[in-house]
Design a protein around this nucleic acid. Structure first.
Lengths: 150, 150
DNA sequence: TTATTATAGTAACACATGTTACTAATGCAA
DNA sequence: TTGCATTAGTAACATGTGTTACTATAATAA
């Protein structure tokens, strides 16, 4: 019989840590601004690349295009995002933040940064750079596995 | 206007890495064994702590109790898991793997280990231990934030 | 031009997940 | 004992997510 310790299984640990952090922050987005994690992400991307199309958001974030579509729909309904048809390509629409959307963005960013700081302050500079290297390697590992199984 | 780079936001990066890895492995569990990620986790826990109650699984894994309940239901339906009422506490039931369940477990563990190895082999010993330290610190950070906001 | 293929976005469906609230059993305190 | 709080587990509902397939537009090739 195989011995296997789930608690020390890398994908599981990673998932627990990630979910704990995301859940923590999501609670604030939800209670303070009524935004889901994905809506928040889309909002940030729109603000930073104003104007941008939905498909470009997908490329930049790896968020599924249906998720983007739904997030944009919700953001538009709340009038945080404005959508204008592109003149160059009638299939696309150019997304930008409304004034209200910008205000929420301005409010939300410091909070996000504060959370990140609360987490990062416990790590040394070396640990932080190591973590970045590890992320890169893990993503490369995923690509390798992906290539293997297809 | 605040500048903020989502791509380098720790919670976001963590989530991307975690989702990529989990998604990769989930594909195999799903296609080879018809198990979801959560069903797989519950199966492993039952195998390692045979017999165990649903509530103990929750404590050990931080998986939501409804998720455990549904996973167990699905596993029982496929006759991978057996449930017997506990004699000491009639509310509880003792869960254990059937023979079929054990076989699947035996098949699945080497695959999980191979994935983990594919990912970890890219990291030095130092990086691996650093990663464990980082996980611990991040979880402590989450607890701190949690305490703060309540 | 026409036919084909690719891209942008969404509707509709099925399924997964989170939340609330409930039943049943237990433990504890008055 | 009775009454209340706690625990184990699940049903029912609402919401979120993934998948498929569709419309509309654009780009390419014959």
């Amino acid at each position: 019989m195989q011995n296997f310790d789930l608690d020390n299984f890398l994908p599981y640990k990673l998932s627990i840590v990630s979910q704990s952090i995301s859940g923590l922050i999501a609670k604030t987005y939800e209670s303070k601004f009524g935004l889901t994690m994905n809506q928040w992400r889309v909002l940030v991307i729109i603000s930073n690349h104003n104007p941008i199309s939905a498909s470009e958001i997908c490329q930049r974030t790896l968020i599924d295009k249906m998720v983007v579509s739904r997030s944009v729909k919700a953001l538009r309904k709340r009038k945080l995002v404005l959508s204008r048809p592109s003149k160059q390509d009638a299939r696309k629409s150019k997304l930008s933040l409304t004034k209200t959307g910008s205000h929420i963005y301005e409010d939300i960013i410091p909070i996000a940064k504060r959370y990140e700081h609360m987490l990062l302050k416990r790590l040394t500079g070396l640990q932080r750079t190591t973590l970045d290297v590890i992320f890169d390697e893990l993503m490369r590992g995923v690509e390798e596995c992906d290539a293997d199984q297809n």
